[in-house]
Computed example of a mutant assay.
Amino acid sequence: MNSSSKAKHQTSASDIWLSAWYGKSRWTLLLLPLNWLFILLSMIRRYCLLRWQQKTLATPLIVVGNISVGGTGKTPLLIALVKGLQAQGYNPGVVSRGYGGRAENYPYLLGADSTAAQAGDEPMSIYQQTGCAVCVGADRLAAARLLEDLGCDLLLSDDGLQHYRLGRDIEIAVVDGQRGIGNGWRLPVGPLREPVSRLASVDWVIVNSPDDNFTLPRFENMYFIPMQICAQSLVRVATGEVQALAYLDGQAVNLVAGIGNPQRFVNTLAECNIHGVLHAFPDHHAYTANDFIFNNNLPVVMTEKDAVKCQGFAQPDWYYLAINATLPDTFWPAFIQRIERIIEQKKSRFGL
C-alpha cells in the first residue's frame, strides 16, 4: 500500500470515529466498560501527577489546550497570543510535544534550519509565524526550563491542558464552535479527554467560530470568549510569494487538509469564494509528492500546517491559506492584567 492509499485508509478510519462522536450514532455505547476504565485511570493519573510530580517554574506559564480529541483551533490561538504578548514587549517562548517530528535529541530548540520532520508541523508553523523561541519534547518540563535559561519571560504550552506535571499559572481551553463537545462522553465512547465540568476550572474558555446560538450542554450560562478565524491571503508554498484571496476567486482547486477538522478549512475557503474537491489526510500526516497525484491539473490550496511539510517538493501552483485568529478587544486588557499580577506574585514567591 503506497503512502497515499495508506493515508486515505487512515482518514476513513478516523472519520468513522469522528462521525460517531460528533453525529447521532450510538454504537460507541458498546464501549462503556472501556470508558469507565479510561475515567478511572485518568483520575489516578491526574491525582498522582498533581500530588507528587507537578513542578512550578519561576516563569509564568500559560497552557492552551482542549478537553476533546482533534483540532479545535489551539494553534491559531496560540500564535495570536504570542504576537499579542510580543506587541506588549514580552519575550514569550512556546513549549510543544512536537507530535510527528523526530529530532536528533530532546528537548529540541527550533532554529532557522529546522524542518517539520524534526520538530513537527505545529511547532514549525508557530516558529515561522512568530519568530519566538519554540522548544519541543515529550518532557515538557525540561523544554520549559531550557526556554527559561534562554531568557523567555513568559512561557506558553501548546496542547498541554492534560500534562499536569508541568505547573501552570493560566489555563485556556479551546472549544470548536461547530462541533462543540460532540456526544458529551469521555473516550472511547465520545471525544472527551476530560469531563465537560473541567471547563469550569480554567481561566478562559475560548470558542472557535461560534454561531449566535452556541451553548455547551449543562453549561448553557458559561461565559466564553468568541474567536474568529479570518482568511488573510494565499501564499505560494514554494516561494513564499503572497497573493490576494481574489487570485483564485471562483476557480476550482484541490483542497488538501491534514488537520483535526478539515471541514472548517473548506468552510473558510468557501467564504472567500474558493471551492474544490477536499483531499483529507490524517492529522499530522507526513506528506510525500505521491500524495498529490490527483486526476486533474488544478491548483492546490492547503493549510499552513500542511505547507511546512511540503516545501521541498511543492509545485508552482500550490498555495497555503494564511489565516489570523482574532479575539474581542475586551479580552486583551484582562489577559495582560492577569499576567502582570502573576509576575508580581512570582517575584515575591521566588525572590526575584
Rank of each mutant, 00 (worst) to 15 (best):
V235L: 10
V69H: 01
A257P: 01
L57S: 10
A270M: 12
Q251F: 03
G23C: 03
M43Q: 15
K347M: 06
Q232N: 12
R168V: 14
A200D: 12
E241C: 08
L41I: 13
C152R: 07
R186V: 07
D153T: 04
T303C: 10
K309D: 11
A257M: 03
L147Q: 08
C272E: 13
Q128H: 12
I16C: 08
E304I: 07
R338Y: 00
S96G: 04
T115D: 13
A112F: 07
P33R: 04
A20F: 02
G160I: 01
K55M: 14
D291W: 11
S348D: 10
G137I: 03
R264C: 14
V237S: 06
A133E: 11
N324R: 14
N273L: 01
R102L: 09
S14M: 14
W36Y: 15
Q128D: 11
L155C: 10
Y47V: 08
W27H: 11
T75W: 09
R145S: 14
L155I: 04
V256D: 01
A286P: 15
N273R: 09
P107F: 02
L166C: 09
P191I: 00
G160C: 05
G351T: 06
Q251R: 09
D291N: 15
N35F: 05
V95C: 02
F331N: 00
A280D: 07
C135P: 02
F331E: 05
E220Y: 14
G93P: 09
A7D: 01
A20K: 00
L49Y: 14
L199Q: 02
Q162A: 12
A322P: 00
K55V: 15
L57E: 11
L37N: 10
V189N: 04
G167W: 05
K24R: 11
V301S: 08
G240C: 08
G250K: 03
Y223F: 06
C48V: 08
I181V: 13
R349E: 12
Q118M: 09
V207R: 00
R145T: 13
Q88R: 14
D317Q: 06
V95N: 01
P123E: 10
